[in-house]
Design a protein around this nucleic acid. Structure first.
Length: 292
DNA sequence: GCAATTTGACCCCC
DNA sequence: GGGGGTCAAATTGC
């Protein structure tokens, strides 16, 4: 299904992304907070419906923007040129670099998916990371740091993450995860969340798709406000009125934060919602109230 | 001494 | 051509 709403005017990809993140943050955070409080005394009725619709609306708006961004980025794919074109000078020197290797192996930047998280500090996600770079970003106040999994060398794990201080709120950090962990993660940390996944897939979406992810396992002592992702998804076909599924993903944890937490992984097509308010049976909620 | 971080250069892609 | 992601030598910390 094609998205029926077009963005107004023409904006830059950076602007699109900013709009998206802002929409996700506002919609998801506010709605989740309200929803969480309401669910403590849950009685089937309109409030849950309104809130759920609000969440969906926010997500849909963000997705529309992401969809356009994704479309504009599509043509870059198919034919990667060889990693080295071969005509550069190899003898370049500087005060720090005296010898430049004959050639460098440069890997593709493409990743099967990504996940962006806004958090009050850099999160302990259960994986060990090694910093491999830092860059000043054009029109950005704060530099961006680049990390890769420490198991890259021994396990060939290709997961990376980028950390950058938020422009709007310097106390927050925007953390972007890219690539899947192919190394073994800490099983203790990997299973400490109470999670539900709302899938924006079709009715034929299999439960397998809703399993807890290779996404970062967040440290719930921290306030993770939102996250979003927008790569490699065919979700644009389903933006009209997403069908919702919900599934309980793991055992409850006593270490959850007091705030409801929502994360999105659009490339895999689901919304991850966490709360310590009580077990939220979203599945029944939705069955009673609306979409199912 | 080893491992992690820093930092300038290299390279890809728009 | 330039922004941004990655590499890898140099530096720093334990």
């Amino acid at each position: 299904m094609e998205a029926s709403v077009k963005r107004e005017g023409s904006t830059s990809p950076a602007s699109d992304w900013k709009m998206t993140v802002e929409a996700l943050i506002r919609g998801a955070r506010d709605s989740a907070t309200l929803l969480s409080s309401l669910l403590q005394d849950h009685a089937p009725g309109s409030p849950t419906r309104v809130l759920t619709e609000e969440i969906l609306s926010s997500i849909s708006k963000a997705l529309l923007v992401l969809d356009d961004c994704e479309k504009s980025a599509v043509p870059r794919t198919s034919n990667p040129s060889p990693p080295f074109s071969g005509n550069r000078q190899n003898e370049v020197s500087s005060s720090k670099r005296k010898i430049i290797p004959a050639r460098r192996v440069y890997k593709s930047r493409s990743h099967p998916y990504s996940c962006t998280t806004l958090t009050t500090k850099t999160i302990n996600d259960g994986y060990s990371w090694r910093k491999y770079g830092q860059k000043a970003i054009y029109n950005a106040t704060f530099p961006r740091s680049y990390y890769r999994c420490t198991h890259k060398t021994d396990c060939g794990c290709r997961a990376t993450r980028q950390v950058q201080q938020s422009e709007e709120n310097p106390t927050m950090f925007v953390i972007t995860y890219m690539g899947e962990h192919t190394c073994r993660s800490d099983p203790n940390k990997a299973s400490t969340s109470e999670s539900y996944f709302l899938s924006f897939g079709s009715g034929t979406t299999k439960p397998m798709m809703l399993a807890p992810l290779p996404l970062p396992k967040l440290d719930f002592d921290e306030e993770v406000v939102s996250s979003a992702s927008a790569l490699g998804s065919s979700l644009s076909e389903e933006l009209g009125l997403p069908e919702i599924m919900a599934v309980e993903a793991s055992e409850p944890s006593p270490t959850l934060s007091l705030l409801p937490q929502i994360s999105f992984d659009f490339s895999r097509g689901y919304l991850d919602m966490m709360s310590n308010a009580e077990f939220i049976n979203i599945d029944e909620l939705l069955k009673d109230d609306l979409l199912l």
